[in-house]
Amino acid sequence: MIYAALFAVLPFASFAAELIKKPSAHDVETTANRLEAAISKAGATLFARVDHAAGAASIDAELRPTVMLMFGNPKIGTPAMQDNQTSGLDLPLRVVIFQDESGSTHLAYRQPADFAAAHGLDAGAEYIARMTGALDKLTNAATSQ
C-alpha cells in the first residue's frame, strides 16, 4: 500500500522539475506582447493567445492576470511528432505569463528535454535542442529590459 502511494506521487514530484520559470521586467500584458513579437520575428507561428483571467471573469471569478501563448514552427515540431505522435500533447509549445501574489510578473514553460522523456523521444535530438534554444531566446526577449 505504501509503495502504491509513493508511485502515485512520483509523477507529480517530477512535474515541478519540468518547469522553467523566469521573472519579467514588465507587466503580464507587455510581456505577452513582447513574446508574441519575438515569436513573429523568429518566423514561428502563434497558434493561440489565451487570457485565463478573462475566462475567470466570464464566470464572475477573480484570477490575477494570466496569459498563455501557444506557438511553434512545424519545421522543428514535425520531426518530434514523426518520432512519436503523442508529443502532440506538448506541441505546439506553450508559455504562461502570470502575476504572482506580490504583483511580480513571471513566465513559465516546460523544458523540452523533460517532455521528450514522457513521449519516449531522444532528449538529445536536434529538434529538442532547437526547441530549447528557441524557448530560451524568445522568453529572454520577452522578459528583459
Rank of each mutant, 00 (worst) to 15 (best):
A123I: 15
R130Y: 09
L107C: 13
R110V: 10
A37C: 12
A37K: 13
V50C: 04
A32V: 12
R130G: 15
A56T: 03
V50D: 03
R49Y: 01
A54S: 11
A38M: 10
A25E: 13
R34E: 00
S87L: 08
E101D: 15
S87G: 04
E126T: 14
K21E: 11
A118F: 07
A61R: 14
D114G: 07
F115R: 02
G88Y: 02
A57E: 13
V28R: 00
F47I: 10
A56M: 09
A113Y: 02
H26N: 01
Y109V: 02
T45K: 11
V96G: 00
A129M: 13
K21G: 05
H119G: 02
D114K: 10
K22P: 04
D51V: 04
A61M: 14
I39T: 07
G77T: 15
T31Y: 10
D90F: 07
A116F: 06
M81I: 08
F71V: 02
A48W: 02
L35T: 01
A80T: 06
V67F: 03
A129P: 15
E101Y: 12
I39M: 05
A25Q: 08
K75E: 15
A56W: 00
Y127V: 15
A38V: 08
H26K: 04
V96C: 00
D114Y: 14
R110S: 08
A56F: 03
R130M: 15
M68F: 06
L46S: 12
S24Q: 03
V50I: 12
D100A: 05
Y127M: 13
Q99T: 10
A123M: 15
L107D: 09
R64T: 08
V50H: 03
D122P: 08
E62R: 11
G103I: 01
E29A: 09
R34L: 05
Q85M: 09
V96H: 00
E18C: 12
K22F: 07
K21A: 12
P79D: 11
A54K: 07
E126Y: 11
K22Y: 04
